[in-house]
Design a protein around this nucleic acid. Structure first.
Length: 415
RNA sequence: CGGGGUGUUGUGUAAUGGUAGCACGAAUCGUUUGGGACGAUUUAGUCAGAGUUCGAAUCUCUGCACCCCGACCA
């Protein structure tokens, strides 16, 4: 991608309105744009990060043991489904609006009210179970107070997976596997997330949160120093020792909740009368679980945990580009080499942002590069050309090294 | 939803009842080019409405918007 053509704009000035680091950096670096409180556009850079996060999640949801099938459910949902589950009046953040013919509809904040009636048309027999479906879809929650940039918004992209089971035992086996899948998903993104035991709230028996340690987080978690399980505040108040290993030494941390998995039991299958016919001919209710990850929030949390005073430092797994190619100076040979490298890198399937702007000085290009936070910076100049090399710098490190032109592609690829 | 704060060119700010100015950005030209270059010219603004006043960015009221604290949070 040519940087001069990229649909974005960096800004030196910190906005006076902005408090959280991720909001400030993502806005200034041109990843996101705020339309209104709690509502954001994702520009090409931000969209690429979002798509990378989505790709990692999708792969893990499709593969065993999750075995999910991807679907897409609507945002507009009828009132009667929410009345059935008693959530039309009791779900505080539900966006309600009037459809044609004065019909009441809701913008879905979650999709049990859609997926359960859907499953009712497909799942009839024990042979149809277990089954898992998932989607990436915008959720709407009319939060009384949106805050911290993209960490808490009113419209946000979420991956939600719903699993349906014939028995509680089968559900629990699946849930335990998903617990590990989730941990692995965040690891694959280059993120350290803690499994956090949480109470289930009013709609489930129990749940686990995935918390990423960051100062800007809204949550406080307590990490057991012995087994590394974390617990949230409610659990801490009920249990003086770790529920897992009975250890008593906890480290208190601020954290951002990036994912959450729930045991739903028959909370939703019951009101919709979602049943199946078992082997012995008896009718039984379907047992359910649900598993969510907030993509935008994950992106914000990554920035909260990975930045310095100059800008963002993306883990390579989610970075919008792998390398940032920057020619310095006006020398024709340098520019020609940069063009060639740009072509070569693309041939090697390396996602590359090429800062070919000729009206910008080196200092400004470097400052932009630091702000954008692409993992590898490749500088070519008269100086490096003399040595048949390029200058390679990792955003996360301060060291700069000269690498032979023939070799640096290999180095970038292998990390 | 309770409380607090703030609204001035695209962005950041100044003007404390009396000429709306500065910096960045953007545009044109020239000189520059390894850590946010320089000169010249240009561009663009008082959130909306009402009121007080000879005169309002400034004071008052209403509305709207955004931010922060709290409460809430599948």
């Amino acid at each position: 991608m040519l940087q001069s053509k990229l649909f974005y704009k960096t800004d030196k000035n910190k906005s006076s309105d902005v408090e959280s680091v991720s909001h400030d950096l993502l806005t200034r670096a041109g990843y996101v744009d705020q339309l209104m409180a709690g509502v954001y556009s994702f520009l090409p850079l931000g969209f690429r990060v979002l798509k990378n996060i989505e790709g990692i999640i999708r792969k893990n949801m499709v593969e065993a043991p999750a075995n999910g099938q991807e679907i897409l459910m609507p945002s507009l949902t009828p009132k009667e489904n929410w009345v059935k589950t008693d959530r039309w009046e009791n779900f505080d953040v539900l966006f309600k609006l009037k459809g044609a013919g004065d019909k009441d509809v809701a913008l879905a904040p979650t999709h049990e009210e859609v997926v359960v009636p859907l499953a009712k048309k497909i799942v009839f027999s024990y042979k149809d179970l277990p089954i898992s479906v998932f989607q990436f879809q915008n959720k709407f929650r009319n939060e009384l107070r949106a805050k911290s940039g993209i960490l808490r918004t009113r419209e946000f992209l979420m991956k939600d997976l719903y699993s349906l089971h014939a028995t509680q035992e089968d559900f629990e086996k699946y849930y335990d596997k998903m617990k590990k899948v989730y941990l692995s998903v965040f690891k694959q993104m280059g993120i350290k997330a803690y499994v956090t035991l949480a109470s289930g709230g009013s709609f489930s028996k129990y749940s686990h949160e995935y918390q990423m340690v960051a100062e800007a987080g809204e949550d406080t978690i307590y990490i057991c120093q012995k087994c590394k399980l974390a617990i949230n505040k409610e659990i801490k108040e009920e249990n003086p020792t770790c529920p897992e290993c009975k250890g008593g030494d906890f480290e208190e941390k601020k954290a951002v909740e990036v994912g959450n998995i729930f045991s739903l039991g028959t909370k939703f299958s019951a009101p919709f009368d979602l049943k199946f016919r078992d082997k012995d001919g008896s009718e039984k209710p379907v047992i359910m679980g649900c598993y969510g990850i907030g993509l935008g929030r994950t992106m914000g949390a990554v920035v909260e945990a990975n930045h310095d005073d100059k800008g963002i430092i993306w883990p390579r797994e989610v970075a919008p580009f792998l390398a940032h190619l920057i020619p310095v100076g006006q020398d024709k040979k340098v520019l020609k080499l940069a063009e060639k490298l740009y072509t070569d890198l693309q041939k090697e399937d390396i996602e590359i942002l090429y800062d070919e702007r000729q009206d910008k000085t080196a200092g400004e290009k470097f400052a932009d590069a630091d702000l954008l936070g692409i993992p590898y910076r490749i500088v070519v100049s008269e100086k490096t050309l003399l040595k048949n090399s390029v200058e390679l710098k990792e955003r996360a490190k301060s060291a700069v090294r000269l690498v032979k032109i023939k070799e640096f592609i290999k180095i970038i690829k292998n990390g």
